[in-house]
Design a protein around this nucleic acid. Structure first.
Length: 562
DNA sequence: CGACTTTGACCCGCGC
DNA sequence: GCGCGGGTCAAAGTCG
């Protein structure tokens, strides 16, 4: 075929469609089939073949070319080739098949001479046998193709399974180490006669406020003051809280450089917004492990925004209202609730409606549960915990304490074409899970709320998801338009799959958080985070026992009075 | 009667 | 020092 000119019926077979310049293609399109080394380089050849379809009247352009069944161990090597040619006039693809006997260099087709390529489009009327053979060849090609695809998918699945198992094992190890560390630290404190004041997070160095000097008197810090009155008794018995806070305290103070991260920003949307204003944090403080993230979660607040006609949306917890205040600039009163599931549980939540949109209920959770949660509350907590983990992991993982917000946004919200400004002024921000975003275009949000008893925010579960598909898409992090607090990061929604996975396996949350951590670290070198420094005190509700990492936040579900 | 809500008073930090 | 605002307390009231 070397001497054969390429006529109008010549089809250029290219395994790399429309990529003539591909460096892998070592042969020029002018090479004919005899020039192809069928034993080593067939998949990368450009082959010119004469189309034998006598009925073909138009020039065809090959769009796809696949090679199958290359068996180099077989002496009589048979290479089945298939190609999909697209008719330029009709745009109807037709399957072209080639069989090569690579052992002899001859095509198997008896009608083919040794120096000619043979293309059978399966439409030649020469004989019935040929038609049957062609049909079998087509089926064989399809079978081979399916097998190849199955193998490829299986490899991918195996890889995913391996990665997941690795992450899961890592998380379990971290959690195990963490529990061990906490027990050890608690033991050390007892042995060394140290007294830990619950809730005391103190800047030992540069705090401008005299009250933040090292002083174990709980009245010497604002946090200590706040908590000493009504929580001291309970928290002193809550070793989970105490140990976590101590760990965070150590994390904060181990670095050399410390700066005052400013005063808290008043947060209209997040009721628990301006406490701990004197807290000093080090921006270089990295929560480089899940352990540290978990500790950070102990100081993180999770604010959930959802549309609801009810002031108190059920969330699986038991709450007792202990106060109500009219907040400045908000016609709606702010309510204060305390967890009543266990005596002395320090977890609190505040509920208020957004002053900008009174249909939006903002629920802010704070503190660790010192007890286990019922499944429903645990599931709710799991989801909010996940959001906090994801953000905290990303926000604190970079070397300079900055978060690659853009990366997070693109990672979690890849379909977003707009670029909402994400800015956090806080190392430990309020994490807001915004379930009001989709409702602007989906007024059925409230219907969903009522359709899913006990699932007021339409947290999807594997069994009762009613979230429209577009609402459950994985979204990114962006600033709430109603938020005036730059320290607030909004996690508008999570995917259905994400929610289901978390509900099915709590470890998946941590695994995913770790995965995102890893991804974000990888991207840090190129990220441009918009980050400034402002302190917002944070505390997230988690299980003080450490047995349930899902308990970052919880709220009520069956308190009919609320 | 227990659990919970309501509500005015109180405490505290912060800004002026 | 004073006033403001956020957060909490605790007595009274309500509900099942």
């Amino acid at each position: 075929m070397d001497s054969d000119p390429i006529d109008n019926n010549t089809i250029v077979l290219n395994s790399f469609t429309e990529d003539i310049n591909n460096p892998m293609l070592t042969h020029s399109p002018k090479n004919n089939i005899d020039a192809v080394d069928t034993q080593s380089t067939i998949p990368f050849q450009l082959i010119n073949l004469n189309c034998s379809n006598e009925n073909q009247t138009s020039h065809e352009t090959l769009k796809e070319f696949d090679f199958f069944n290359i068996n180099n161990n077989d002496h009589n090597k048979v290479v089945s080739l298939s190609a999909f040619a697209l008719d330029n006039d009709t745009n109807i693809p037709s399957l072209l098949k080639i069989k090569l006997n690579t052992g002899t260099g001859d095509f198997l087709n008896p009608n083919t001479s040794g120096d000619q390529s043979m293309v059978d489009d399966g439409m030649s009327p020469t004989s019935d046998d040929k038609g049957i053979k062609n049909e079998m060849a087509i089926l064989q090609v399809e079978l081979d193709r399916a097998n190849t695809e199955n193998r490829r998918l299986k490899l991918i699945l195996d890889q995913l399974q391996t990665d997941y198992d690795t992450l899961r094992m890592h998380f379990n190890k971290v959690m195990h180490d963490r529990m061990f560390d906490e027990k050890s630290k608690e033991k050390d404190r007892i042995e060394n006669g140290k007294v830990l004041v619950p809730g005391q997070i103190i800047d030992f160095e540069l705090a401008p406020n005299a009250e933040t000097e090292m002083d174990l008197d709980p009245s010497s810090s604002s946090i200590g003051k706040k908590r000493s009155r009504d929580e001291l008794g309970s928290l002193t018995n809550n070793t989970g809280v105490a140990s976590r806070e101590l760990v965070l305290e150590k994390n904060i103070n181990v670095s050399d450089e410390k700066i005052e991260l400013g005063k808290g920003i008043e947060n209209e949307d997040s009721p628990i917004g301006n406490a701990d204003k004197t807290q000093s944090l080090n921006p270089s403080n990295n929560f480089s492990s899940i352990h540290q993230v978990e500790d950070a979660l102990g100081k993180a607040r999770v604010s959930v925004r959802a549309r609801s006609e009810e002031d108190m949306v059920p969330d699986g917890g038991h709450w007792r209202k202990y106060g109500q205040k009219m907040a400045k600039g908000n016609p709606c009163a702010r309510s204060y609730y305390r967890c009543s599931m266990a005596a002395g549980c320090p977890v609190r939540k505040q509920i208020q409606r957004s002053p900008q949109d009174t249909t939006i209920v903002i629920t802010t959770y704070e503190g660790y549960h010192n007890h286990s949660l019922p499944p429903k509350a645990a599931e709710m907590a799991q989801r909010t915990s996940s959001a906090a983990k994801m953000f905290l992991t990303g926000s604190t993982s970079s070397k300079d304490g900055k978060m690659n917000v853009d990366f997070v946004k693109k990672t979690l919200h890849p379909e977003s074409s707009s670029s909402p400004t994400i800015s956090t002024n806080s190392l430990l921000p309020i994490v807001t899970i915004d379930y009001t975003k989709p409702s602007s275009s989906h007024p059925s949000r409230r219907q969903n709320h009522q359709q899913i008893p006990g699932n007021p925010y339409n947290f999807s579960s594997s069994s009762s998801s009613k979230i429209p598909q577009d609402q459950s898409k994985l979204s990114g992090l962006y600033m709430s338009p109603n938020s005036t607090n730059l320290s607030e990061i909004v996690v508008p929604n999570v995917t259905q799959a994400f929610s289901d996975a978390m509900a099915a396996d709590p470890n998946f949350t941590a695994a995913l958080a770790a995965l995102i951590t890893s991804i974000m670290r990888t991207s840090q070198s190129t990220g441009n985070a918009t980050t400034s420094s402002t302190t917002t005190s944070t505390a997230a509700a988690t299980d003080g026992t450490g047995n349930n990492n899902a308990n970052l936040a919880s709220s009520d579900n069956n308190n009919g009075k609320e």
